[in-house]
Every structure is written in C-alpha cells, then in structure tokens.
Design a protein around this nucleic acid. Structure first.
Lengths: 200, 200
DNA sequence: CGGTAACCGGACCGCGCGGTCAACTTGCTA
DNA sequence: TAGCAAGTTGACCGCGCGGTCCGGTTACCG
C-alpha cells in the first residue's frame, strides 16, 4: 500500500540507526533534543535525517509508532493467553518495562497529532479494552473500572518514579502494585467521578 | 535576611503581575513559553522581567516557591486538625486542586536546581511525612507506605488525566480515589519493591 | 515641590535551532 | 562493469530565543 521501491541497503541501515539514536537522545535530553545531535549520534549527516523524516515531528511519530505497535502486538498475544486473570497484569508490567528502559512519554504531545500514530493508539486502546473486560469478568478488577481508566493509569508508575532520579530502576513496580491494589474489587470504595468516555 | 529596602509601589505591582502572567503562560504553553510573551501578558517590557528575575530559571523558581509554600502552609494547618484520619485525604485533594487549576509540574525539572526551592520542597516533604505517619497510626493507610510514597503518588491523578484534554476538570478525583483505595490497609497485597529512601 | 535613585522599555546581540540545497558518492541493475 | 538513480553531506538560511543596556520616566523623601 505504500512502498513502491525497497530501500537501498545503506539507506535502510541509516534509517534504523537514526531511530535508535533519536530514541536514546530524546530519552536522555528530553523533547528538545536537537536534530543535529541525533544525526551525530547516529553517525550520519544532518541532511540524512531530513531525507528519511521530512520533519522532526515525523521522526518523533515514527518512534512512537514503533513502540506502540510493539506494545500492542504483545497485548494481542495476551488476549488469547490461557490465564485471563494474569493477562492485564502482564501487560501493565510490559508497558512499565518499556517505559523504564526509555521514557519517551513526553513525545506523546510533541508536535502536531499524526494520523498513523493516532490509528496505532486507537488499536492499542481496543486491545486494552478487551484485556480489561476479561479481567473484570473474572473478578480480578472492580466493576466500575473501564479500559480508558487503565490506559490513563498505566503511565503513572513510571511517571511518579521519575521524580526520584537516583532510585532503583525497579521502583515503578512498587507503584504499579499500589495502583493495582486500588483496582481490585476487595475493599473498593465508591469513586467520586464517573469514568471518562472512551474517545479523545 | 534579604530585603534591605522595600520595593517601590509600581515595582511591587509589576512583580506580582509578572508572577501570575508567567504562571498562566507556562500553564498554557508549557515549559517553552517565552519571556517576551510573559512580559506582553503582564503588560510590561521584556527588560522589566529581567530586572525582577535575573534569569528565566529564577522566574520559574519564584513561581514554584509560591506554590509550594502555599501548599505547605495548608498541610501544616492540617497536622493540628481535629480529625487526623481525614487530614491526608484533604491534603491530597488540595494538591490536586492546585494542579488542576494550573498544571506546572513540568517546571519542577526546568532549569538548574534552586536552593530556595529545594529547601521549600524539603519542608513540604516533612509536613507530608507527619501527615502520613498520623494516618498510618490511625489505620487509614497500610503499614508499608511511607511519606515519600505519597510525595510521589500525589502528582499522579492530575498527570494521568492530562492525557485526556477534553475530559471533566474533576476527573482527577476519580484517580485519586483509585490510588487512595490502593493505599488502604483492607485487601492490601505485598508490594514487589521496598520504599525508596526519603532523600533525593 | 524639587532632586534623585530606583525603575521601565524596547532596540539590540549572539546563539542554536529546524529545515534547505547543490555538489558529491555509492549501491543496484542490465 | 558501466551508468545512473538513489542516497549522503555539511555549509547555509531565517527565525525566535534568553539576556543586555542605556536613555527616558516616575515614585518617593526631605
């Protein structure tokens, strides 16, 4: 549907180098990492960056697309897994590990919204919805929790630990544990606000 | 300790205008809001900004200082309140309301660490510590939770809802409710990670 | 009310950014 | 292996940023 020509060998190599260099650079320096630094880190000229990604925003979108597709693929495998109770938990752990390795959450809002990224996000939300539905049916999760709730909360453990830069790299698991306890049916108190509608 | 001379009337007025204009501008445009825009919003020249705050970082520090001192004052009042069980909850609600009104969390990491801000933060952490200690003693909060845990988690509800810009302005209360349920002793599961040490 | 120090404003500076381009190099194919 | 399209490069551009500075203005004090 899109590729009329395969990429030349060196070009494909450079594209891949750029994606990992950019991800590393963003993770280290934040959203203001410069294209020049990314190019240097990948060992290519600045012009090469813009040959592969017309815009800095496009580069960011390509990174997000890769990560969301990877996470979504993992989630889809979990939907058909034998143990439906553990599925949601495993998914949240995988999401946390991905973000622990390289926190690129701030890229979500960087630049203009991208159509492909939005589509991938929607796909992932659907996967999460079914994971949550199954978990709820099996009584692992309280009845008043929706998929959108989990979409929002799954980012929290890594976020909160980012305030303690020197802490253990596994500290996020502690807060995932606390939040997950809050999602369980046992001892749940009524919530002061209804769940948000699933869309944007 | 610091003010050998009182500020001239117009200077004091301008300083105040600048602080609120800067807070508004940062809340709307994020950490990259420009000093020129802030000056325009406050109705003063750009030079006036730098007369009051030598550096953009200093301006940010002044904003953070104001907010943390306000929140800390509220917390200290709660420490001596009659109902120790509700104290922690009320504090977390106040923190959430402050952040809902204007989310400036991203300013925490902006610029170099400032001594006064660090001191104010330490003071607030101590207040939170005593609030949590009292709550734990009264059985409102599970035994394996520390003040540092709450310091980290208190930012989460507003953060997660920021991913849904169109949602209800009170949605954060829902996630504060979920997290608080996770902090309660009833039905608590053991946590996979020990609490972080209280310091940085 | 007059003198003056504090204060204000905005033109100005250097810098680093995202993005462009034309000359050069290189992997692919017939 | 010859030819060429595809790919690469880094000098270059315009822009907007944080920060400076000095001539004009204004609130305060005696």
């Amino acid at each position: 549907m899109s590729s009329p020509r395969p990429l030349r060998a060196d070009a494909a190599r450079n594209r891949e180098s750029l994606l990992v260099a950019a991800a590393d650079e963003f993770a280290e320096r934040g959203p203001d990492a410069s294209v020049a630094d990314i190019a240097r880190r990948a060992g290519v000229g600045k012009g090469t960056v813009f040959r592969h990604f017309a815009t800095k925003d496009d580069l960011i979108a390509a990174i997000l697309l890769d990560r969301m597709n990877a996470l979504n693929a993992f989630g889809e495998r979990l939907v058909d897994a034998p143990d439906p109770a553990a599925g949601l938990w495993e998914f949240l752990v995988a999401a946390g590990e991905q973000r622990q390795q390289r926190d690129l959450s701030f890229l979500q809002d960087a630049g203009e919204p991208n159509a492909e990224v939005t589509a991938a996000r929607t796909r992932m939300f659907r996967t999460i919805d079914t994971l949550v539905d199954r978990a709820r049916q099996h009584g692992v999760v309280r009845a008043d929790i929706t998929g959108t709730d989990i979409v929002l909360l799954m980012c929290a453990p890594n976020y909160v630990t980012s305030y303690l830069p020197g802490a253990s790299p596994d500290l996020w698991r502690r807060y995932l544990g606390i939040i997950f306890d809050g999602l369980r049916p046992d001892g749940a108190h009524p919530l002061p606000q209804p769940p948000p509608s699933s869309g944007t």
